[in-house]
């Protein structure tokens, strides 16, 4: 009885809708193909969406403060590229990874300071750094992928397994747990929600809102940089256009997961499930032999349906 009761409590969670959508979509795809619900396929799907999902963890925190980070794809691509450059120059793998994450830190500090110290709107600040990042990548690579020699142990990050589970998925799960705890159980998390919920009330209550904002941009870029390092470890090739356009998918994941672009609302778990849903659709399109060009259109439809349902549900629940 108690277990049943607790299961019923789940439906009050914000993430419930998107979780149901994920399950229904999975069942729908399984109706048409026996290959979807297999361990190897599910693990492959998970690995494929894990990078988007990891980045969406940083993004959803930014969105909860009422901001947006368009530069995540550039932070990711540039971090992978710098990691590759370090290997190329003969540095150790630890130095290479640290340099990659350092790129993320620098991106985040730049975004955060443009937004807090100068007061640029987040959309503009991160649009600028997005473009600078892309430009730097072309300048560094001259459009040619970089494929340096790397030690065996480095490729574990992107290619390894823990039992049947790919390492990037393990990293995703660990980050999901850590950041869920941070956002729901710590003072910092509370301050992130308060800043997005009502910035001036938060500031007048003593919340250091500028510091909170700086922190979420640094976290978002650094997490994206980690995704970039993992991507490089997986393919062992730093592509000049790596990460381009991924910001839209990452924002979509957060939005499908219930985050409000107006700030104050959203969750890490929701964003991760949102990324999973997008990944599941991509997989379904391939398995069902649907034109892959249709995938983007289907994802777009899902975003609109998911967010509309969320908005309608809130309107019904509200007291006008």
């Amino acid at each position: 009885m108690r277990v049943l009761h607790q299961l019923l409590q789940l439906r009050h969670m914000r993430e419930f809708n998107v979780l149901i959508a994920l399950i229904l979509m999975g069942l729908l795809i399984s109706l048409f193909t026996p290959y979807f619900l297999t361990v190897s396929n599910l693990m492959g799907v998970s690995r494929a969406f894990s990078l988007t999902a990891i980045m969406s963890i940083g993004m959803v925190m930014v969105i909860i403060t009422g901001g947006i980070d368009l530069s995540v794809g550039s932070a990711m691509g540039l971090a992978g590229l710098i990691t590759a450059l370090c290997f190329d120059a003969g540095y150790s793998q630890y130095a290479a990874v640290a340099a990659g994450l350092g790129v993320g830190l620098a991106f985040g500090l730049t975004n955060g300071l443009l937004i807090t110290a100068i007061g640029l709107p987040p959309f503009i600040a991160t649009l600028g750094t997005l473009s600078i990042g892309r430009g730097l990548m072309y300048m560094i690579t001259h459009g040619v992928p970089l494929t340096p020699q790397t030690p065996e142990s480095f490729s574990v990050l992107g290619q390894g397994y823990v039992g049947p589970v790919p390492v990037p998925v393990v990293i995703l799960l660990v980050l999901t747990v850590i950041f869920t705890i941070i956002m729901t159980r710590t003072r910092f998390g509370r301050h992130v929600y308060a800043t997005g919920g009502n910035e001036s009330a938060a500031r007048l209550s003593g919340v250091k809102v500028q510091r909170v904002k700086l922190a979420v941009y640094v976290l978002s870029s650094t997490i994206s940089a980690l995704a970039g390092v993992i991507a490089f470890s997986r393919y062992l090739s730093a592509e000049p256009a790596s990460g381009f356009g991924s910001e839209l998918e990452v924002i979509a994941a957060a939005a499908i997961g219930g985050a409000s672009l107006a700030g104050g609302i959203g969750s890490v778990l929701g964003a991760v499930i949102g990324a999973a849903l997008i990944g599941e659709i991509a997989n379904g399109v391939v398995l069902l032999n649907i034109n892959t060009y249709a995938q983007q259109a289907i994802t777009g439809g899902v975003i609109l349906i998911a967010v509309s349902l969320d908005v309608l549900r809130n309107r019904m629940g509200g007291r006008g």
Binding site: R185, T186, R187, F188, R190, H191, Y193, A194, G197, N198, S200, A201, A202, L204, S205, G206, V207, G264, I265
Partner: peptide
């Protein structure tokens, strides 16, 4: 300017003195 309307009574109440209920940074 006084309240975060979308937050609960509890979360609004403690916003001014959240550290009173925290050890390390955990609430």
């Amino acid at each position: 300017r006084g309240l975060v309307l979308g937050m609960s009574v509890r979360e609004n109440f403690s916003l001014t003195h959240l550290s009173d209920y925290c050890s390390l940074d955990f609430v």
